[in-house]
Design a protein around this nucleic acid. Sequence first.
RNA 1: GGCCCUAUCGUCUAGCCUGGCCCAGGACGCAAGGUUCUCAACCUUGAAACAUGGGUUCAAAUCCCAUUGGGGUCACCA
Length: 475
Amino acid sequence: MPNKTVKTRIAPSPTGFLHIGTARTALFSWIFARQNKGKFILRVEDTDLERSEPRFEKDIIEGLKWLEIGWDGETYRQSERLDIYEKYLARLLKDGNAFWCRHSEEELAEERARQMKKNGAPRHFCEFRDDPFQGRKKSGPGIIRFKNNAKEDIKFNDLIRGEIVFSPETLGDFSLAKDWRAPLYNFAVVVDDFEMKISHIIRGEDHISNTPKQILIQKALGFSLPQYAHLPLILNKNRAKLSKRDGAVSINDYRKEGYLPQAVFNFIALLGWHPKDDQEIFSREYLLKEFSFGRVQKGGAVFNLEKLNWMNKVYLKSLKIGTAADYALNFLPEEWRKICAKNKKFWQNIVKLEKERIVKFSELAGKIDYFFKEPVYPKEILCWKEKQDYQDIVRHLIYILKLFEKMPALSFSENKMEKAIMPYAEKEGKGDVLWPLRTALCGKKYSPGPFEIAAVLGKKEVLKRLKNAVEKIQN
RNA sequence: GGCCCUAUCGUCUAGCCUGGCCCAGGACGCAAGGUUCUCAACCUUGAAACAUGGGUUCAAAUCCCAUUGGGGUCACCA
């Protein structure tokens, strides 16, 4: 039964590019909202003025759009909501639930170090806590803290992990804001989630330890508690939180490398979630139908590039040739792109040949240069298994040359060529004939089949390249 | 270090709630073979895991306890 009041959000902070983990959180939040006919919104958490940058916000938005994880109109930016935070902050101070703390950062750091040394929980119960404005900032240091008087255990029910319990003493008087108009994370989140009527907070496991603080603030402000679902983390090879130093962690890195959005979507969905059966390749419709928190994994998942690569190949294979060609066009050097944009059929034929041989589109350009210019290669490449006699190669090439010359240019097709040449190749040894033919056309050890290449190149070009090869040997 | 989360093949995981069908299934990767002028694709086969120790039970990957390992977090970052 769909819950009509469901509202979820993705709340990235624009201090870096769209992280894979953020994308997956967005994906699950989006699915959950869709499943329940609810809403999914975007909130940019840019309260850290020092580190937030517009280019990161742009990247995050582009990444989400690329994956077609769309939010419902509402987009918020915390930096534009300072009046709201100020209002709630005033209320907290007035009610005696918050206070100004005048300790310097150095003092606080020292205190923490002392506590850690004594094997205790590092926390700050402040001496200014009983008079909200005693420590008020005039010019020196100071921030607004939560006056944590909680005695009872703080409990919440996580949709993925069940009940989680914290004892409040370990929290201390935690920070709320640097100043009236400079809210800090835990406080801003609580206010926004309430104001935006978020029903389900879906986020990474690294936020579990923030949850009790947020609950305390919610209670002090008289807010109703949302539901929580803490997703397992995405890990690197060393099983630590995946971070920038681990290489490509931004969704747009994968976009730029020419991965397909469907593949990335499918892959990150499967990183921590699994359907009832063994199906691993699935559409967003399938996921929409099948997703549930009950099947979300509790333990972290290592990001496995090899599997993504495999998955991208699967999607690449199933892509219609026209679609693939259009998409792939973006990954060509300018000069070739112009040629292909004018000659779509030519380009599609090329893509058809390489589509199943590449992992991602960025590999394409390096493999198809011989369609745009004559190949440059050492004559040794023409030898099959590196020990074929050059005289034999010349003999075979000339034979093929003559066969091809007799064929009408218009019916210079894969099939016709094959029919014409195969009897000869069977007789002389397939490798002995086909290898030199293929390498003469493309100048590469590895490539699609000779007839496939020849058909795309066309009769005139094929004859020219065969003659070149013969000359190369004879000189 | 305190607190919290977590634990099945190298990796992603099914199975665990509701013990027996599991000497543990699938996928990626790996290895071997087949197909093949090369590469890719495809087909067949194989190696590969219930963290450890105690219980409970006729029976435990599944339930209970302890231990160990891994991770997260403890900011005037989010």
